[in-house]
Design a binder for these strands. Structure first.
Lengths: 212, 212
DNA sequence: GCTGAAATACGTTTTTATACGTAGCGGTTT
DNA sequence: AAACCGCTACGTATAAAAACGTATTTCAGC
């Protein structure tokens, strides 16, 4: 049996190094590559081949969801395991759409990671138990992800909202009418299925758009 | 030279295991204990002795700041190194007050961790470079931390605010007058030095009060 | 018994946010 | 050419939040 080649993408260097060390002790793991964000990972994939990618979802530059989609274009055979801090249903759905076949939480044990890797390598899929519970608790949502269909302008305004600027301040900063920013904010609430500012901020953080 | 005993407290099992593995490869590191939150860590300290504690700040049950204070009561000789995801000035100040002598970010390298451990063990203090930069960028704040002086009621209401409830809804839920909740919210903005709801939510997450 | 902090509650005012509507302009896709 | 989408902008209305103030009760610590 060939050794399994792994590509780790995570913006926390210490986490990455630790995971690499743990994996390198397994006999059936071969080369382990690292990247600190989605962009670096997908660039790296152009000149390297990996069997399995362990992708953090919350990353700067390019998040795990975008990275997974791109990775499967660059390297169709690659198996993707998502690694998230949060047990969020939308994440799960987005990652499935993006082509992931495994989903782990950062507070799962290394044993779970091992299981996920061997399962996925053998064309099975693996979902962490906590996530399964979470999905079963909540009834199925109508559709997939939300994070992708925000426009650039909306994302820009969303970030300013999260930083505590009022619509007036945002309008001034971006040279827009206050009423325009009002409208963008309204659309943001709709698209993110948020009820108010607090929900909006949580959404932004959960989706890795705001690095705090 | 005696080997250094380490106590790791972090709620992400995978991170903990990785860090433990990295540390266990160092010749001068002896026993490594683990805890998944501040409570478990301080309980463990009653029957164990450690030279250095690596404390995550954002933890459920009991955060790193509280844990550090308590740890130094239980085991006055212990050296504390804080480990945070965020490069936040208030964190730094709170941890210094709580008796920490090292401060690392989770995206620092393992080399930095090694340096921090040896420095701290030799009665020096260690601060990650990113944090130093961050502190130098911003002028010194008047005083120390903020997280501790929230009352139970305030914390309760803060969490409900972050979940997206309006003052009216919170009042109903807690059987209070809407005006009372108004007042609590006002005090929360004051105490956390926030300008509005968005700032409040960020504060809550940064201080580990809200697990998302 | 006094003091202070926390929790409760109310009044008033201004500023923001939320919610519903409409609509023109510039670009891309079909 | 028509259809669609993103961005812009406005009108109106209500709800909520923010910014001042005051005041009572209760409970812990001195």
């Amino acid at each position: 049996m060939n050794k399994i080649t792994i590509y780790i993408a995570d913006d926390h260097s210490l986490f990455r190094e630790g995971l690499k060390m743990l994996l390198s002790n397994l006999a059936y793991i071969g080369e382990i590559y690292e990247a600190e964000n989605g962009r670096q990972f997908t660039e790296g994939l152009k000149s390297r081949v990996a069997d399995i990618a362990l992708l953090d979802i919350e990353m700067p530059e390019m998040n795990g969801i975008e990275a997974a989609k791109l990775a499967r274009k660059i390297c169709p055979g690659i198996k993707i395991i998502a690694l998230s801090m949060y047990s969020d249903e939308n994440y799960y759905l987005s990652m499935i759409e993006a082509g992931a076949c495994g989903f782990l939480l950062k507070n799962s044990s290394f044993q779970e990671v091992e299981k996920a890797i061997t399962d996925v390598y053998n064309d099975k899929s693996y979902i962490s138990i906590e996530i399964l519970n979470n999905i079963l608790k909540h009834p199925a949502k109508t559709s997939g992800s939300l994070i992708e269909d925000l426009s650039e302008r909306e994302t820009e305004i969303l970030l300013l909202i999260c930083k505590g600027f009022t619509n007036n301040e945002i309008a001034e900063k971006l040279n827009l009418s206050k009423r325009t920013v009002d409208k963008h904010r309204e659309n943001l609430l709709l698209k993110t299925q948020s009820k108010n500012t607090a929900n909006l901020v949580i959404f932004t953080i959960k989706n890795g758009l705001l690095k705090i």
